[in-house]
Write a protein that binds this DNA or RNA. Structure first.
Lengths: 248, 248
DNA sequence: CGCTCCAATATGTATATACATAATCGCCAT
DNA sequence: ATGGCGATTATGTATATACATATTGGAGCG
């Protein structure tokens, strides 16, 4: 139990009150129950509803505002903002961070791991001139219960020999590579794609449903290191890149 | 000035203390002054340094932790995490240039032009607080014979009054705006979408076909200027962003 | 009628305090 | 030595309070 006894019947959870307010409101917005433009209850009303102090409510609302889900206006209240789909920032390399930024529990699952000599297609993807050993990995990233992204990755074993020893069962290839291999150059390709049967199956969506595909090739000092393809269900994901010409 | 007088000589800024602590620490990390693994000062030390309460420091550190810049461990302190925040900045693209880079003849066609008072939806898209006049434009960009992209644009006439005089029959809104209105901030949202009937009709593709949607909001000195949505048929377009880590 | 100015109101930021929780350090007994 | 256990410590979350700030709506005046 927490500091204060909220004498809810439904509790049993050990999450903080702050987290509960946050996810309650987020759910109302994402489910569409509170449409864009809707005024969400005032802080003092939520204070009464959750029987907590204004600071706690304020912290939750401020967080939602910073996440871009709501907009706060003095003297007027807080309002649901436009986009249904939440933001994952293009700068983030790490899907775990993207998912956790959404306030959802993250889970990683390796589907397949295959060591082989590079095919012509592999070499095209990696930008390799000569044949050599590569590692093929397929994994799923979950946000809560739902698949968040399918990852298909090639690692050039000539550049990262140690990868051959790693099973990638407990750690995703992305975080593993970072820190081990400093990258000197990267290239992103972003496009839309209809889910084929394999992808639809993995992501638990309908075949033909639109997906966002982000492919990244990375080089370390002229040597191709990895090629990775992230496939996101369209409705679950929007890339956001925000920038100012001079300073952030 | 704020609630407390920090009697700094360097101030003059009206930013909150919380913001200052945040950006101070962020800067130390991003500049490399505090390397990954470095233990940043304890909350009570920062409390002394900034002459503020623990809550204020705590809020700033929690925020940095949520952003993934630092890691917090009970009884041990807070530590700098992996730095690699790579900004994948997309260029503000000019469709004419994209098309001509493909070696195809470019053509522009204005479909619709409507001056109106901003609806709630318009204000949400533009990020406007108050109502005011806006200009709605729908245009098609062709590569050779085929539609290359559908453009749907809102211009905030309170910020760019001259736009009301322009018909946009011979010049696309993008090039027109550039140079006339210096932008201070921009935000890209990229996602996949299934073409609805209107879009499918305009782009001459099948309804339900996957499309790449690029939305951009632009501000000029805090004032929302324009919101534009480019819709590309999936098979015709891939965004490419190539970059090297500038530093850190 | 329209303009100014003031009070009311909701959010923004900070304070001081309290207790919970997790991890570590060191003491002590076996 | 060594294994357990309590004290210490840093963070986590919540409280109540205070005052700042921006904006809206209305009263009052020319």
């Amino acid at each position: 139990m927490s500091l204060i006894e909220t004498d809810d019947a439904e509790s049993g959870e050990s999450i903080s009150l702050h987290q509960r307010i946050l996810s309650d409101i987020r759910e109302k917005i994402l489910s569409g129950a509170w449409a864009p433009g809707h005024r969400i209850p005032f802080e003092h009303e939520l204070t009464a509803e959750y029987r907590c102090s204004r600071m706690t409510v304020n912290k939750a609302l401020s967080q939602l505002a910073k996440a871009g889900l709501i907009e706060r206006r003095r003297r007027s209240g807080s309002f649901v903002r436009q986009p249904q789909s939440q933001a994952a920032v293009l700068e983030l390399h790490d899907i775990r961070i993207e998912v956790e930024a959404l306030g959802l529990p993250y889970r990683y699952e390796r589907l397949e791991r295959l060591r082989r000599r590079s095919s012509a297609e592999d070499r095209a993807l990696l930008g390799l001139a000569a044949a050599g050993p590569v590692l093929w990995l397929e994994s799923l990233h979950f946000a809560g219960e739902r698949p968040f992204a399918l990852e298909q990755r090639l690692i050039n074993l000539s550049a990262v020999a140690e990868a051959a020893e790693e099973e990638f069962l407990d750690i995703a290839p992305g975080p593993w590579l970072i820190g081990r291999v400093p990258w000197s150059e990267a290239e992103h390709r972003i496009r839309a794609m209809a889910a084929d049967e394999t992808v639809a199956d993995a992501l638990d969506i309908d075949p033909g449903a639109p997906c966002l595909v982000v492919e990244r090739r990375t080089w370390s000092a002229e040597h191709p290191v990895t090629h990775v393809r992230f496939i996101y269900p369209a409705e679950s994901h929007t890339l956001v890149a925000r920038f100012t010409p001079s300073q952030g």
